[in-house]
Design a protein around this nucleic acid. Sequence first.
DNA 1: ACATGATATGAAACAGGTATCACACAGATG
DNA 2: CATCTGTGTGATACCTGTTTCATATCATGT
Lengths: 329, 329
Amino acid sequence: MNISEFAVYAGVSKSAVSRYFNDGYLSDDKRELIEKAIAETGYSPGISARTSKNRVTKLVGVIIPKLSSESISRVVEGISEALSAEGYELLLVNTFNDCRKEISSLELFRNNRVDGVILLGTVFTDLHLSVLGKMHVPVVIAGQNVKGFNCVCHNDEGAAYALTKLMLEKGRKKPAMIGVTKDDRSAGLSRWNGFRRAVDEAGLDVPARFMETSRFDMDSGYEKAKFMLSGGHLPDCIFCATDSIAMGALLYCREAGIDVPKDMMIASVGDSKLGRAAFIPLTTAHLHYKTEGRDAAEMLLMALKRSDTVARTLELDYEIIERLSTETV
Amino acid sequence: MNISEFAVYAGVSKSAVSRYFNDGYLSDDKRELIEKAIAETGYSPGISARTSKNRVTKLVGVIIPKLSSESISRVVEGISEALSAEGYELLLVNTFNDCRKEISSLELFRNNRVDGVILLGTVFTDLHLSVLGKMHVPVVIAGQNVKGFNCVCHNDEGAAYALTKLMLEKGRKKPAMIGVTKDDRSAGLSRWNGFRRAVDEAGLDVPARFMETSRFDMDSGYEKAKFMLSGGHLPDCIFCATDSIAMGALLYCREAGIDVPKDMMIASVGDSKLGRAAFIPLTTAHLHYKTEGRDAAEMLLMALKRSDTVARTLELDYEIIERLSTETV
DNA sequence: ACATGATATGAAACAGGTATCACACAGATG
DNA sequence: CATCTGTGTGATACCTGTTTCATATCATGT
C-alpha cells in the first residue's frame, strides 16, 4: 500500500498524510482519520522514496576489520547505543581485514546510502587518505589518530609506557616486547614507542631478539613467545601489545615451566575478559572501548548537525589494572 | 552529481547510463565514454532513488539482543560472510535485551528499508509471533526453534544431555545445574530438559537447591555458584547453560578452595575462548555459531529467490570437547 | 471593518533513478 | 526481396514519497 492508496482509504489528501508523518500543519480531525486508518492497515511510509527527496537515510555506515574481537564488539556496542538514542540505525560492513573491502565500502558510502561513516581502521595507506578526502558525508575514525580527520582514539603510547615502567620499577632489568605491525599506528607503532620510551628512560638496552612482531591472535602470541623464550638468555618481563598475545605468551610459559610472575612478568593492553579470568590474571591497561564507540558516534552526530568542517581529535585516557602477572612475590 | 548531469558530462543519454549500471544493451563506445567519465568524476548512482522504483535495497536487517557476546559476534560474523558474498549489506539493530525494541525494529523492517530480516531472538511472546506473522519480507530466526517460521538452531537439548551424561558416567552422583530463564527456549528450556533427561535416565534425584537460574554473565554465574556451594551439602558436578556462567562458577571454586575437577566437575555449552584459556580448561559443547549465521543468511537468500513460502527448520549438531574440568584424576 | 499572521489544504512540481516504448539498423533466413 | 530477430537508442512515463505554491479560513489587534 502506498501513500496515495492510503490517502484514499483514510479519506484525506496525499499531502495530509505526508504532513502527518512530517509534522506539518494538520487539523485534529484529519489527524484522527489518519490514525484510525493506520491502526486498521498498518501503513507506514517507505523509506526509500522519502530519502530520494530529502536525502536523509538515518543510517550510519560502520566499517570494521572483524567482528569476532572483544574490543571491536565493545566499540560497536557503544556506537550502537549512541546512535539508537538519536534514531539512527547502523549499517555494518565487515571487511575481514581486507583493505580493498575497506576502500570499496568507503566508496559505496561516498555518495548516498548513509548519512555518515565511522571507520574502525587499522592500517592507513595513501589510498585510504585519498578516498577519505573525497567523501561527501562526514567520517569519524575510531581507534586511530589520523591527522586532518575526525578521530576518537586512545592514549596508546601512554598506556604502553605506564605498563612497561610498572614492571621496570619492580626491579626488572631485561624487558622484552611482543608487538604488532607498525603499520597499525595505534596498537602497533604507538605501543612500541611507549615501551621504547620507558626502556630508554630506565637506561636499559633491549636486544633485537627481545622484540617480536606478532599477529593479533592468541596462537600467534604463543608462537612468538615460544621463539623468544626458547633460547638460552631469557628476558625477565614481557610487554605485549594486546591481551590475546599476552594470553598466548602466558600459555607458553605454563607449558615451558616458566614461573609467572616470579621469573617472568607479563603485562598487556586491553583488559579483556580473557586476561581477567586467566590462570594468572593479567596486569593490563583498560582502554575505554565502549566509550570510544559512544564518543565516535556522538562526534559524528555533531558533525551532521554542524555546518563547520573542522577536524577534531578526541583522546581517551587509560586505566592501569594491576593483577597477579606483575606481582612481586 | 545526478544521473542527468552525469549523462550530459559523459556525452550519452540518461538511459545509456542507467543501462550501464543495469546490464542492458549498450555499445562498446558508449560503455567506454561512460567508464571514462566515471573515472573522472567518481559518479555512482544513488541507491535511494533506484530503490523507490525496483524495491530492492540489498540490505538485510539483523536484530540482536546484544553485541558484546562471543557467541553472537560469531553468528553475526557468519551472517556477514554469507551476505557480503551475494552483495548484500547488513543493517544491524542492537536491542540491548529490550523486547520492545525487538518489536519496533521488526515493525520498522516490515515495510521497506530491508529485503529480509534475520532475528537472533531469545524470548518469543505472542506479540512477537503476531508481528512476525505480519511481516512483508522474509524472516529467518537464528538460534531458536519457532514453529511456523524459518529457523536455524542448535541441538541444545542433545548437547546438555551429552555433557551431563558425560559427568554422570564418570561416577558423579550429585549433579547440579546453573541454567538461564526458561523463557529462552534454546539456552534456557532445552538445556534444562537435556540435563533433566540425563539425570532421570541415571535414576538420580536433584534437590531444588542444586538448580539455580542465572543471568548470562560471568558475575551472575559466580553469585549463583556461591549461593549453591556455600551450604553444607555440596554437589559433585555442575552443568552450566553457558560458558560464561561456568567461568563464574569456576572462579568461585578457586576462591572457595574447591578442587576442580577432583571434587567438582564443571561442564557447559558454548566453547568460548574464555573456557579454553581458563586456568582449568572447561569441558564444553561446541555449537557451530558461525555456521549458524552463515546458514541463516543462506536460508534468507534462498527465501528471497524462491517464491514458495514454506517454513523450513535447520538444526545443527554439536561437538563435545573434553577438557580438564571433567577429567578423572 | 480591516489588515495581520498563524493555521490548514489540495494540486502540482520535484527528487533521482528505472522500465517501457517506439523505432533504427544490422545480419540471418526463407 | 521481404521478413524476422537480436542489438542499440533516446524520449518519456513511472516509482513513492516530500515540498512548494496558491489559496482558504479564522482569531486577533487596531
